[in-house]
Design a binder for these strands. Sequence first.
DNA 1: TTCCAGGGGTAGA
DNA 2: TCTACCCATGGA
Length: 303
Amino acid sequence: MFSQRILTGDDFDFQTVIDSHGWVQLAPFAYDRAAQRLSRVHQLLDGRIIHLHIHADGNTNRDSFLRVEAEGDVFPADFPEITETVRRIMALDWDMTGFYTLLRDLPAYAWVEQNRVGRLLRAPTVWEDMVKTLLTTNTTWRQTREMVSRLLPLGDSSPYGDAFPRPEQIAALSLEDLNAQVRAGYRAAYLHAFAARIASGDLNVEGWIRRDIDSETLYKQIRSIKGFGDYAAGSIMRLLNHHDRLSIDSVARDAFMKVHHNGEKPTESHIRAHYDAYGQWRGLILWMDILRDDYRDGVPPES
DNA sequence: TTCCAGGGGTAGA
DNA sequence: TCTACCCATGGA
């Protein structure tokens, strides 16, 4: 059994990352809330499938740690890859300083830094984050979970479960077979075309993890992919640690209505105008308005 | 039956 | 840039 400790910064909190959005509910993630343990059927770059487990591992003074365990054929040579994967899943490399500094002038958001909220749970690959985001569009969260679950048998299987399918595995299917399996409706064509572009080498989304891409260029590239409109592109930007775009969906509209608009339905231009003042952090501030109720009275979220 | 969900593409103005 | 209309799917 692989077991390793990873040092986190003092502004990191395991549970708030878990509860940062719905990804924890999507396969191949699984979360044991009682044990506070995040698990994942994970495929290494060379194709081996392991079972990853991540949980908080206590604090010493200011430092806190994650404990990472892995079942399967894991060797010391795999440690760097696994560590890098965990750092990406937990957004450990995000620098939250600028965000928290901005919020210190906004008392209504004091709860954010107090609870060390802001980092977002991510899949190990941009590909997986984008597929899941595509499957949130114009559908219910329940159906998103079901579509993602039906996607998994298209990936490689293992004793621990199925790994998330790779682009070439999706692209190799006919559109008919893909949709018969996933029942993604009209989204299946977008998914298939997206997978095919990656598999052919036409598109390299994993390169977007690099921080040196300017937001404007990145946004245009995401928006150029069919199926990814303003909402989806804004969500992907957020997961890539670019927060100068808003992702406005029914959840965001509902939160804005309650928090800033006296319970009245806002127009999109109202929403955009409100968050303009927050510049490069506007997208994450909007997300905080969605999470706000979870941290009322300092009680951690239930689901 | 109609509406709508963590919307988006397209044609036509 | 803005608007109507269409798009599978499944629950309410």
